[in-house]
Design a binder for these strands. Structure first.
Length: 294
DNA sequence: CGCCTTTGACCAGCGC
DNA sequence: GCGCTGGTCAAAGGCG
């Protein structure tokens, strides 16, 4: 009870803060030539305020996600996997991080779970990647459901994180994704990315104000290996790619496919163009758009 | 040959 | 207490 109130208060504060930040960005970046960017920011702001209003109206967050106020997570960096996994609802006991296999017991797990609704892109029959690495371990057709549920667990290590994907019968393009446990290994990557972002700010401009023309496009890292972590960022004229071995921004091969593209391209960058300048084995940690647009 | 997916079996939670 | 349900296991097969 008390924990729920604390959690909802935290979500409320987070959503209101996020909305404020987005509003400031919308004001800062308003440009009639970038209507798609403005529309995206406006949608995010509305989403944040909807969540906050739901909480103020006494709607439990879980109910908000599960029932009429279905939360559709669009495949944009604003729905950063990193921030999602930091949800207190989801975090089990991160202090006891270990890579031991979870208990062999087949006892049904009663871990805190979090459900999201994800839309597939038009023409695709699979939900968009969430930036984390998963390995499928089971699939079963549940009674009364048209499509089978697919069960995944953490691939890079054995932190016990699981994910269940269910295709909605009535909305074939919508998937219900239920996360269980905590993806500790990716949290490590996220910490590395935070450090890398600070390094970028230090090297390129020093302060966020001086970096106002740059968009951090993507953090890039490889599984279980921090040595090849990198970051890609750009302004309206150039795309830079750097890694943590030198922290010196260097232009990527020109013309880069992302050059002169709008921010819409940035939002889906990780799936369409990432392989242009990274090893095929990389995984990409999607970042919060509103957080890293500096 | 090793990794990944598939699939039937197992077993505990849950409702009646 | 019993049966149903669904989450997980693990062997088998597929694929690169």
């Amino acid at each position: 009870m008390g924990e729920n109130n604390c959690w909802e208060r935290e979500v409320l504060i987070t959503e209101l803060t996020k909305g404020k930040e987005l509003m400031l960005q919308l004001q800062k970046h308003f440009d009639p030539m970038k209507q798609d960017v403005c529309q995206y920011l406006a949608a995010e702001i509305l989403s944040s305020y909807d969540k906050a209003m739901s909480l103020l109206n006494g709607t439990a967050l879980s109910g908000m996600m599960m029932s009429k106020g279905k939360e559709i997570i669009h495949p944009a960096p604003s729905s950063s996997s990193a921030s999602q996994l930091e949800s207190p609802h989801l975090l089990a006991d991160s202090s006891t991080k270990s890579c031991d296999r979870p208990s062999k017991s087949r006892k049904r797990k009663t871990l805190a779970r979090r459900t999201e609704y994800v839309e597939a892109r038009p023409g695709e029959k699979v939900p968009p990647e969430d930036g984390l690495s998963w390995r499928k371990y089971g699939q079963r057709l549940v009674l009364g459901e048209k499509y089978p549920r697919k069960y995944y667990r953490c691939a890079p290590c054995c932190c016990g994180a699981t994910k269940v994907i269910r295709r909605i019968d009535t909305e074939p393009l919508t998937f219900e994704v239920t996360y269980g446990g905590s993806h500790n290994c990716d949290q490590e990557n996220n910490n590395q990315n935070e450090q890398l972002l600070l390094a970028v700010q230090t090297q390129v401009g020093g302060t966020a104000g001086e970096l106002s023309d740059f968009y951090i496009r993507e953090m890039v890292s490889t599984p279980n290996n921090s040595s090849s972590t990198g970051v890609v960022f750009s302004n309206s004229n150039s795309v830079f790619n750097m890694n943590n071995s030198d922290f010196i921004p260097t232009p990527t091969s020109s013309p880069h496919p992302l050059d002169n593209n709008s921010l819409t391209d940035f939002l889906f960058f990780h799936e369409s163009s990432a392989n242009d300048f990274n090893s095929p084995n990389h995984i990409l940690t999607k970042l919060s758009f509103d957080h890293y647009l500096i």
